[in-house]
Design a protein around this nucleic acid. Structure first.
Lengths: 126, 126, 126, 126
DNA sequence: GTGGTCTAGACCACC
DNA sequence: GTGGTCTAGACCACA
């Protein structure tokens, strides 16, 4: 897997895991890949994966059983929505809207772009 | 002026200048504050301002007259819209929509949030 | 290493790296010395090296792996030739020819001077 | 008149005057335009012209009659050829040849490029 | 006065 | 360990 430049890798990995949980690909109380396996799959330094896991653990999204591995917490979905959606709506969206405003993109256009985006994603999945 | 921590200062200065140009506060062929003056006003090191200016010059948004100062290029508005709007629509929006989708925010909700945001801004201006 | 006074140091470093790539001393996908090491070798401030690296990155000649270092891009040779040869032939040569013309140096004489130069270089290498 | 970026303006003005002398447009013992006139014609700061004149005076190419103006020295042509041609052949050409060598341009190609250049100039003059 | 470059040294996030 | 950014302060050429 390749990682885009502007976000730190460990952050992208955290996001990836959260998304998979929200999308139902990972389930609560599932065990995550070991740090080494995950690092191998993603072609990334184990330290970097470790950092993602630690971060998610701090957020209460996963937890650790010593010597066994990392597991997705019960209630992880709720917690992710709590944390991420809030920062998304409260912090990210305003900055996005501010830019859209400057560039003269109307609310209707934004809606249309979003609809188009969703269509694009659907087609890819087929 | 205060700077946000997550973006580099020189980047925020560049953005600030671009926005002022788009908003019509700075005009094409206007002279920018000298590096030292701008640095003084923003309470920032001259090197940091220099970096912003150099960056904008590379982008063709401002240009330099030897020994006189930096000036806003003719066509700067167009160029900024070209560069920024393109990266906004092509790179920023998709990631925003992807998140919105995951968090279950519909196109109509996005539109409403944007409308609300614009109202908020208008009220502030009064 | 010693630097010529009329060109900026960071520029000379960039040129040095490009030449080494063209001459086959550095190869595509090789890792460059770290900023600090290079600075130490050249007896120069790390910031100065950083500037060279950033410049070459902007030109697409080298790229960065986060936390690991700078690497020579695949296709760097082509890209350098593209950039440098073009500016050499289109911008530098005309001014040279213009001067040669004024000083009454004929095309044949230029050719002879060049041949002599190449012989001189060959002898040095022995 | 517009001045290209990479050389200092006063230097470009000096070169311009020297060329006009070599090309026979200005003659020895001719009076040069006053600093102010020249500055007006070139749309440049008088200080900058002054600097060119001083420079040329230091080189012995022009001389000053107090209160009257600057005049081209007798022997200016010889002196210019002495100074400029020497630095051209001894310093500029080697660096040019070095680059040509790196870019794989042969002596014959250089000659052809030079011949082409001369043809181009001739056509412009018609 | 203007920009441009460089040094020294610091701090940070990241791998 | 890596790069990236920033400050403070200096020096230079140029207009």
């Amino acid at each position: 897997m390749e990682f885009n430049s502007n976000k730190s890798i460990y952050n992208q990995i955290s996001d990836l895991i959260c998304e998979n949980i929200l999308l139902g690909k990972f389930h609560e109380e599932d065990r995550l890949d070991s740090v080494r396996d995950m690092a191998g799959n993603l072609e990334v330094n184990p330290n970097t994966v470790m950092r993602s896991y630690s971060f998610l653990q701090d957020e209460g999204i996963i937890y650790n059983k010593r010597g066994i591995g990392y597991f997705i917490s019960t209630g992880a979905v709720t917690r992710i929505l709590d944390i991420k959606k809030r920062t998304f709506v409260d912090e990210e969206l305003p900055s996005v809207f501010r830019q859209a405003d400057i560039y003269g993109i109307s609310p209707d256009e934004i809606k249309v772009l979003y609809v188009d985006y969703k269509k694009g994603v659907e087609n890819e999945e087929k």
